[in-house]
């Protein structure tokens, strides 16, 4: 049981939050706003799944916010030029994978630290996007929002896509050799190498996957509104990393489950709505999020200290 201690703690915290909302602010659970809120959290979930894989393989990617913004605009521009939605989706995911591949080459094959590499690509994509779009809102053609369907249907599609992704990724991490490669690389790259796994290929693949997921996340975001903003990805990297860390993904690699990431995501994402519903000022959100991250790592630190002695 202690193996899933973190997941259980976060689940308990989330349960507590939901329960107190149910008692003291039941209108939180009104169907339409509740579903809208959940839908709006799905892009970050997709990104958090990607970042969890990256962290499990003992790397980090802080460029995903920029990748997300870039992919959203690429998809938007593609769609605005009259091409079908499918092409736009493909373009977004492809662009994300390409940006991830650049990170992957620099980290995996040139041996550069991922924190600096992704810092550099983050700045590069972000500013390239600003230069390109000049901060303009991009109006999307009709038929993009909610995939051209009704809002409830569109929301259902977004939510189910994200959950299919989550279930698929969690299943793959457990049942596919690839999942084991990622775990092994993050636990002990040298042992992985001796076992015949090439940690470089694994790391590269994880970064490409991360980019692709950032593209998918951008698509899930794109279809929720009639416009797309170039700065829509700002801060996404922190949200995603925080969700993963709070959900029990160890920053030292090799440990973590995607279910924990889901729980961490939901807990952090609901801080702000909960504040509103408890009639508390919303500007405490960031401070509380920071505190939750610190609590999670401190708990990790104390636990590993105990096991050491």
């Amino acid at each position: 049981m202690s193996k899933y201690f973190r997941e259980l703690t976060v689940a308990a915290a989330l349960g507590l939050l939901m329960a107190s909302l149910a008692i003291f602010a039941p209108h939180f659970f009104q169907w339409q706003p509740f579903i809208s809120r959940l839908t709006s959290q799905m892009p970050a979930l997709a990104a958090a799944i990607g970042i969890a894989l990256v962290i499990i393989s003992r790397q980090i990617d802080i460029s995903i916010g920029s990748q997300f913004g870039m992919c959203a605009i690429i998809a938007g521009v593609t769609a605005a030029s009259g091409l079908p939605l499918g092409v736009a989706i493909f373009a977004a995911i492809g662009a994300g994978a390409a940006m991830g591949a650049l990170n992957g080459v620099l980290v995996a094959y040139l041996g550069l630290p991922s924190i600096v590499v992704t810092l550099a690509t983050m700045v590069t994509w972000q500013e390239a996007l600003r230069l390109w779009q000049q901060g303009r809102l991009l109006n999307l053609p009709a038929g993009i929002q909610w995939f051209g369907l009704s809002q409830p249907t569109g929301q259902a599609i977004v939510i189910s896509l994200a959950f299919v992704l989550l279930v698929g990724a969690a299943w793959g991490m457990k049942n596919l050799a690839a999942g084991r490669f990622i775990h092994a690389t993050g636990t002990d790259a040298e042992a992985a190498r001796l076992a015949g796994i090439d940690p470089r290929h694994t790391t590269f693949a994880v970064f490409v996957l991360m980019g692709g997921l950032a593209g998918l996340a951008a698509v899930l975001n794109l279809v929720q509104s009639p416009q797309v903003q170039p700065n829509c990805g700002d801060g996404l990297e922190l949200k995603a990393i925080a969700a993963a860390v709070v959900g029990g993904v160890a920053i030292s690699g090799g440990r973590g489950t995607l279910w924990g990431v889901l729980l961490g995501m939901l807990l952090l994402a609901n801080v702000n709505p909960a504040l509103t519903h408890f009639h508390q000022p919303p500007y405490w959100e960031k401070a509380i999020q920071g505190l939750v991250i610190l609590l999670a790592v401190v708990a990790d630190g104390i636990r590993s200290r105990k096991t050491k002695i």
Partner: peptide, 18 residues
Amino acid sequence: ALFPDLTVAENIGLRLKK
């Protein structure tokens, strides 16, 4: 050169199955 988080069977599988 084993992976402590994986089970014995998983470690053997990882090592032997290409």
